[in-house]
């Protein structure tokens, strides 16, 4: 098991190198110049040249990348040329917002998807099953921004139950903080439950045909125990995979939802950095997101081994 974990962690390195290098290359292809942006209408060719040299922008791209990498390896992610804020501070400000949103959204999506999937699998082919799978399919064609607007209209405008926008730090007022996350998390959860439900439903239907389910019945177990103990665990590999992908994606922020609900998350940090040509912030934030993504996938791999012991022993 320790060997398995060690090898997984080694995969992290090439992935991170590739991701940061690609971001560097793509960012350098963007039109526009940070020096010109910073100097504004004060820009003369001499001043621009001087600032570029000061920021190291006159060096060839591979040198810039290696310099950046060297600094990162020494624990220095750099600071924004524009605001002077360090990358670490910028990410540390935004990451908790994105993480809280992600956790609430995923938990809500799973709480909706798992019971419905079990219900559909047990009654597969029935009117209930057809209605719910139809609903899930219909939901897939409804974009999140529409859902967000409908939710705001319903819960914030008509019923006046929840705030439509804004964000209050948890330390300041935990209740208000949670309230400000309800609608954005619900928006994301509504976007995700149909996929989760469909994969779990089809895996569960296959599992319920297995001989060991007949065996569990022959032992006199209650239907609830058969479903939750004997069927759910071997049916949840795809569910875990899809949830992992969703979580990985949400670590990078949910841009549209963050914009609509005015949440200061990673998504808005990244897009702001791109617009401002603030490459150091962009590069640092991407590094964090990539690490997060790889870590989540690592956890998903670990979960496979927990859910299906054959994987654990096959690789050990």
């Amino acid at each position: 098991m320790a060997k398995f974990i060690g090898r997984r962690l080694l995969y992290l390195l090439p992935v991170l190198l590739a991701v940061t290098l690609l971001t560097f290359l793509i960012a350098s292809l963007l039109p526009g110049d940070l020096a010109i942006t910073l100097l504004g209408d004060q820009a003369t060719p001499e001043k621009v040249e001087a600032l570029r040299a000061q920021m190291g922008l006159d060096l060839p791209i591979w040198q810039r990348y290696l310099l950046w990498l060297w600094d990162v390896l020494h624990g220095d992610l750099g600071r924004s040329f524009r605001t002077g804020e360090t990358v670490l501070a910028a990410v540390a400000d935004r990451l908790p917002v994105s993480l809280e949103l992600m956790v609430m959204a995923e938990v809500t999506a799973l709480l909706i998807a798992i019971p419905l999937a079990i219900l559909c699998a047990v009654k597969s082919g029935s009117a209930t099953d057809r209605f719910l799978t139809g609903l899930a399919f219909g939901k897939l064609s409804l974009p999140p921004f529409m859902v967000a607007i409908l939710l705001i209209y319903l819960f914030a405008v008509s019923l006046n139950l929840l705030p439509a926008t804004g964000w209050i730090p948890f330390a300041e007022d935990p209740i208000a903080n949670l309230r400000s996350f309800v609608l954005p998390a619900l928006t994301l959860a509504i976007a995700e439950w149909p996929v989760l439900m469909r994969v779990l439903r089809s895996d569960m239907i296959a599992t319920l045909q297995e001989d060991y389910i007949a065996m569990a019945k022959a032992k006199g177990l209650r239907p609830a125990r058969i479903l939750l103990v004997h069927a759910l665990k071997p049916s949840s590999l795809t569910l875990v995979t899809v949830t992992g992908i969703n979580i990985g994606r949400l670590i990078g922020g949910a841009l549209i939802v963050e914009v609509i609900f005015a949440l200061p998350g990673i998504g808005r940090l990244l897009v702001g950095a791109i617009y401002a040509r603030d490459f150091i912030i962009l590069q640092g934030a991407v590094l964090f997101v990539a690490v997060g993504f790889v870590m989540v996938n690592f956890v998903v791999d670990m979960l496979y081994a927990v859910l299906d012991p054959r994987i654990r022993h096959g690789r050990a």
């Binding site: 297995e210 001989d211 060991y212 007949a214 065996m215 004997h230 071997p234 012991p309 054959r310």
Partner: peptide, 10 residues
């Protein structure tokens, strides 16, 4: 079928 009648996950 002893191969498939025991739950692989438990």
């Amino acid at each position: 079928e002893p191969m498939s009648s025991l739950n692989p996950a438990l």
